[in-house]
Design a protein around this nucleic acid. Structure first.
Length: 258
DNA sequence: ATGGTGGCCTTGCCA
Protein backbone atom coordinates (compact mmCIF):
# COMPACT_ATOMS: atom_id res chain seq x y z
CA UNK A 1 0.00 0.00 0.00
CA UNK A 2 1.56 3.23 -1.20
CA UNK A 3 0.64 6.39 0.74
CA UNK A 4 1.75 9.83 -0.44
CA UNK A 5 1.79 13.33 1.00
CA UNK A 6 2.08 16.29 -1.33
CA UNK A 7 1.57 19.98 -0.73
CA UNK A 8 0.43 20.92 -4.23
CA UNK A 9 0.28 24.71 -3.68
CA UNK A 10 -3.04 25.16 -5.52
CA UNK A 11 -4.73 22.17 -7.09
CA UNK A 12 -6.04 24.39 -9.88
CA UNK A 13 -2.49 25.31 -10.84
CA UNK A 14 -1.15 21.79 -10.25
CA UNK A 15 -3.82 19.48 -11.67
CA UNK A 16 -1.73 18.51 -14.75
CA UNK A 17 1.25 17.65 -12.57
CA UNK A 18 -0.89 15.78 -10.07
CA UNK A 19 -2.67 13.62 -12.65
CA UNK A 20 0.67 12.94 -14.38
CA UNK A 21 2.18 11.88 -11.07
CA UNK A 22 -0.74 9.58 -10.25
CA UNK A 23 -0.17 7.82 -13.56
CA UNK A 24 3.56 7.44 -12.98
CA UNK A 25 3.57 6.34 -9.33
CA UNK A 26 0.11 4.77 -8.96
CA UNK A 27 -0.28 5.49 -5.25
CA UNK A 28 -3.09 3.84 -3.33
CA UNK A 29 -3.63 6.94 -1.22
CA UNK A 30 -2.69 10.52 -2.04
CA UNK A 31 -2.97 13.16 0.67
CA UNK A 32 -2.81 16.71 -0.61
CA UNK A 33 -2.38 20.01 1.15
CA UNK A 34 -2.90 23.61 0.05
CA UNK A 35 -5.50 22.75 -2.56
CA UNK A 36 -6.59 26.40 -2.27
CA UNK A 37 -10.10 25.69 -3.50
CA UNK A 38 -13.68 25.38 -2.29
CA UNK A 39 -15.30 21.97 -1.95
CA UNK A 40 -17.57 22.87 -4.87
CA UNK A 41 -14.57 23.33 -7.15
CA UNK A 42 -12.76 20.13 -6.15
CA UNK A 43 -12.38 17.94 -9.26
CA UNK A 44 -13.73 14.75 -7.69
CA UNK A 45 -15.04 13.61 -11.08
CA UNK A 46 -11.64 13.78 -12.73
CA UNK A 47 -10.10 11.78 -9.90
CA UNK A 48 -12.93 9.25 -10.08
CA UNK A 49 -12.13 8.71 -13.75
CA UNK A 50 -8.60 7.83 -12.63
CA UNK A 51 -9.97 5.31 -10.15
CA UNK A 52 -9.82 7.38 -6.98
CA UNK A 53 -12.46 8.09 -4.39
CA UNK A 54 -11.81 11.41 -2.72
CA UNK A 55 -12.60 13.57 0.26
CA UNK A 56 -11.84 17.29 0.31
CA UNK A 57 -11.94 19.80 3.13
CA UNK A 58 -11.49 23.20 1.56
CA UNK A 59 -12.19 26.82 2.21
CA UNK A 60 -11.31 28.61 -1.03
CA UNK A 61 -8.39 30.96 -1.45
CA UNK A 62 -6.18 29.43 1.22
CA UNK A 63 -5.36 26.10 2.83
CA UNK A 64 -7.48 23.07 1.88
CA UNK A 65 -6.63 19.38 2.38
CA UNK A 66 -7.75 16.21 0.63
CA UNK A 67 -7.42 12.44 0.63
CA UNK A 68 -7.65 10.33 -2.53
CA UNK A 69 -7.86 6.56 -2.36
CA UNK A 70 -8.28 3.65 -4.72
CA UNK A 71 -8.42 1.13 -1.85
CA UNK A 72 -11.59 2.40 -0.20
CA UNK A 73 -12.37 5.61 1.63
CA UNK A 74 -14.50 5.22 4.76
CA UNK A 75 -15.48 7.42 7.69
CA UNK A 76 -14.18 10.67 6.21
CA UNK A 77 -13.96 13.52 8.68
CA UNK A 78 -13.02 17.17 8.24
CA UNK A 79 -11.38 19.24 10.96
CA UNK A 80 -10.59 18.28 14.56
CA UNK A 81 -12.94 16.25 16.71
CA UNK A 82 -11.37 17.13 20.05
CA UNK A 83 -14.49 18.57 21.65
CA UNK A 84 -13.45 22.18 21.04
CA UNK A 85 -14.76 24.60 18.43
CA UNK A 86 -13.74 23.63 14.87
CA UNK A 87 -10.58 25.22 13.52
CA UNK A 88 -11.63 28.16 11.35
CA UNK A 89 -9.16 27.08 8.66
CA UNK A 90 -9.27 23.93 6.50
CA UNK A 91 -6.10 22.17 7.62
CA UNK A 92 -6.87 18.55 8.46
CA UNK A 93 -9.05 15.71 7.26
CA UNK A 94 -9.20 12.01 7.96
CA UNK A 95 -10.34 8.84 6.21
CA UNK A 96 -9.94 5.09 6.61
CA UNK A 97 -8.38 3.46 3.56
CA UNK A 98 -7.79 -0.30 3.44
CA UNK A 99 -8.03 -0.46 7.21
CA UNK A 100 -5.53 2.35 7.75
CA UNK A 101 -6.70 5.52 9.49
CA UNK A 102 -5.10 8.31 7.44
CA UNK A 103 -4.80 12.01 8.19
CA UNK A 104 -3.86 14.76 5.73
CA UNK A 105 -2.46 17.75 7.65
CA UNK A 106 -1.46 21.26 6.70
CA UNK A 107 0.17 22.67 9.81
CA UNK A 108 0.11 26.49 10.10
CA UNK A 109 3.29 28.17 8.89
CA UNK A 110 3.86 30.29 11.98
CA UNK A 111 5.24 33.25 9.99
CA UNK A 112 7.54 34.54 12.76
CA UNK A 113 8.37 33.62 16.34
CA UNK A 114 6.78 36.81 17.66
CA UNK A 115 3.70 36.55 15.42
CA UNK A 116 0.24 35.47 16.59
CA UNK A 117 0.38 32.84 13.86
CA UNK A 118 3.22 31.12 15.70
CA UNK A 119 1.01 30.69 18.76
CA UNK A 120 -1.74 29.41 16.46
CA UNK A 121 0.75 26.89 15.07
CA UNK A 122 1.71 25.59 18.51
CA UNK A 123 -1.95 25.39 19.56
CA UNK A 124 -2.81 23.61 16.32
CA UNK A 125 -0.14 20.98 16.93
CA UNK A 126 -1.45 20.45 20.47
CA UNK A 127 -4.94 19.98 19.05
CA UNK A 128 -3.65 17.34 16.64
CA UNK A 129 -2.22 15.43 19.60
CA UNK A 130 -5.50 15.79 21.49
CA UNK A 131 -7.40 14.62 18.41
CA UNK A 132 -5.23 11.50 18.26
CA UNK A 133 -5.79 10.87 21.96
CA UNK A 134 -9.56 11.19 21.54
CA UNK A 135 -10.15 9.44 18.24
CA UNK A 136 -7.40 6.96 17.42
CA UNK A 137 -5.56 4.05 18.99
CA UNK A 138 -1.78 3.77 18.65
CA UNK A 139 -2.24 0.01 18.43
CA UNK A 140 -4.15 0.41 15.17
CA UNK A 141 -2.88 1.10 11.65
CA UNK A 142 -2.57 4.89 11.70
CA UNK A 143 -0.67 7.12 9.26
CA UNK A 144 -0.57 10.88 9.80
CA UNK A 145 0.99 12.75 6.90
CA UNK A 146 1.30 16.27 5.65
CA UNK A 147 3.16 19.53 5.52
CA UNK A 148 4.20 20.01 9.13
CA UNK A 149 6.14 23.21 8.49
CA UNK A 150 8.74 21.92 10.94
CA UNK A 151 12.23 20.60 10.19
CA UNK A 152 12.58 17.96 12.91
CA UNK A 153 16.37 18.19 13.17
CA UNK A 154 19.30 20.30 11.96
CA UNK A 155 20.03 17.74 9.25
CA UNK A 156 16.55 18.45 7.87
CA UNK A 157 17.42 21.93 6.59
CA UNK A 158 20.20 23.56 4.63
CA UNK A 159 23.13 25.13 6.40
CA UNK A 160 22.99 28.84 7.05
CA UNK A 161 24.58 31.07 9.64
CA UNK A 162 21.56 33.40 9.68
CA UNK A 163 18.41 31.89 8.14
CA UNK A 164 17.48 29.76 11.13
CA UNK A 165 18.30 32.15 13.95
CA UNK A 166 15.18 32.86 15.99
CA UNK A 167 13.18 31.41 13.10
CA UNK A 168 10.05 29.35 12.72
CA UNK A 169 10.21 25.75 11.43
CA UNK A 170 13.24 24.99 13.61
CA UNK A 171 12.39 26.43 17.04
CA UNK A 172 12.43 24.16 20.06
CA UNK A 173 8.74 24.66 20.96
CA UNK A 174 7.73 23.56 17.44
CA UNK A 175 10.03 20.56 17.59
CA UNK A 176 8.75 19.72 21.07
CA UNK A 177 5.15 19.87 19.80
CA UNK A 178 6.05 17.54 16.94
CA UNK A 179 7.81 15.22 19.39
CA UNK A 180 4.65 15.23 21.51
CA UNK A 181 2.63 14.12 18.49
CA UNK A 182 5.14 11.37 17.77
CA UNK A 183 5.04 10.50 21.47
CA UNK A 184 1.46 9.38 20.96
CA UNK A 185 2.93 6.46 19.00
CA UNK A 186 4.06 7.70 15.61
CA UNK A 187 7.41 7.36 13.85
CA UNK A 188 8.94 9.58 11.15
CA UNK A 189 9.09 6.80 8.57
CA UNK A 190 11.55 8.56 6.26
CA UNK A 191 14.26 8.39 8.92
CA UNK A 192 13.75 4.63 9.24
CA UNK A 193 15.38 4.36 5.82
CA UNK A 194 17.64 7.39 5.35
CA UNK A 195 20.18 8.94 7.71
CA UNK A 196 21.78 11.48 5.40
CA UNK A 197 21.39 15.23 5.52
CA UNK A 198 20.44 17.35 2.49
CA UNK A 199 17.34 15.24 1.88
CA UNK A 200 14.53 17.74 1.56
CA UNK A 201 10.88 17.93 0.48
CA UNK A 202 10.45 21.70 0.04
CA UNK A 203 12.50 24.36 -1.67
CA UNK A 204 11.53 28.05 -1.79
CA UNK A 205 10.67 29.26 -5.30
CA UNK A 206 12.84 32.30 -4.63
CA UNK A 207 16.50 32.68 -5.33
CA UNK A 208 16.94 29.45 -7.26
CA UNK A 209 16.95 27.59 -3.96
CA UNK A 210 16.11 24.24 -5.52
CA UNK A 211 19.15 24.37 -7.76
CA UNK A 212 21.29 25.53 -4.85
CA UNK A 213 20.00 22.56 -2.82
CA UNK A 214 18.66 24.94 -0.19
CA UNK A 215 15.59 23.13 1.08
CA UNK A 216 13.94 21.70 4.15
CA UNK A 217 12.38 18.36 5.01
CA UNK A 218 9.04 19.48 6.38
CA UNK A 219 6.67 17.02 4.68
CA UNK A 220 6.41 13.97 6.88
CA UNK A 221 4.93 10.48 6.93
CA UNK A 222 4.25 9.57 10.56
CA UNK A 223 3.18 5.98 11.16
CA UNK A 224 1.99 3.93 14.12
CA UNK A 225 4.09 0.96 15.24
CA UNK A 226 2.26 -1.62 13.12
CA UNK A 227 2.60 0.56 10.02
CA UNK A 228 6.22 1.46 10.73
CA UNK A 229 6.95 -2.24 11.02
CA UNK A 230 5.26 -2.81 7.67
CA UNK A 231 7.10 0.03 5.91
CA UNK A 232 9.15 -1.09 2.92
CA UNK A 233 10.47 2.21 1.61
CA UNK A 234 10.04 5.94 1.96
CA UNK A 235 11.18 8.36 -0.73
CA UNK A 236 10.92 11.94 -1.94
CA UNK A 237 10.23 12.30 -5.66
CA UNK A 238 12.61 15.19 -6.18
CA UNK A 239 11.93 15.12 -9.91
CA UNK A 240 8.44 16.45 -9.23
CA UNK A 241 10.05 19.74 -8.12
CA UNK A 242 11.57 20.13 -11.62
CA UNK A 243 10.05 21.04 -14.96
CA UNK A 244 7.07 23.18 -15.86
CA UNK A 245 5.00 24.77 -13.09
CA UNK A 246 6.08 22.61 -10.17
CA UNK A 247 4.80 22.94 -6.64
CA UNK A 248 7.44 24.20 -4.23
CA UNK A 249 6.99 20.85 -2.41
CA UNK A 250 7.86 17.40 -3.74
CA UNK A 251 5.71 14.35 -2.99
CA UNK A 252 6.89 12.09 -0.17
CA UNK A 253 5.66 8.52 -0.33
CA UNK A 254 5.97 5.32 1.62
CA UNK A 255 5.11 1.73 0.76
CA UNK A 256 3.65 -0.53 3.43
CA UNK A 257 3.17 -4.30 3.35
CA UNK A 258 -0.47 -4.16 4.37
C1' DA B 1 21.08 43.64 -0.75
C1' DT B 2 15.87 42.57 4.39
C1' DG B 3 15.94 40.91 -1.72
C1' DG B 4 13.82 36.66 -4.63
C1' DT B 5 9.08 33.70 -7.02
C1' DG B 6 4.67 32.00 -7.48
C1' DG B 7 -0.05 31.23 -5.73
C1' DC B 8 -4.60 33.72 -4.96
C1' DC B 9 -10.57 36.24 -4.56
C1' DT B 10 -3.99 40.27 -7.41
C1' DT B 11 -2.21 46.56 -7.03
C1' DG B 12 -1.40 43.28 -1.14
C1' DC B 13 -1.14 38.95 1.35
C1' DC B 14 0.44 34.40 1.96
C1' DA B 15 3.95 30.97 1.58
Amino acid sequence: MRIVTWNVNSLNARMPRVTEWLGLFEPDVLCMQETKMSDDAFPAGEFAELGYESFHHGEGQWNGVAILSKVGLDDPRANFADGCAPDAEARVCWATCNGVRVASCYVPNGRAIDHDHYQYKLAWLARLRADLDANADPGDNVVVVGDFNIAPETRDHYASSTDFENATHVSQPERDALADICGWGLTDVFREFHDADELYSWWDYRGGNFHKRKGMRIDLVLASASMTGAAELCLVDRNARKGESPSDHAPVFADFAV
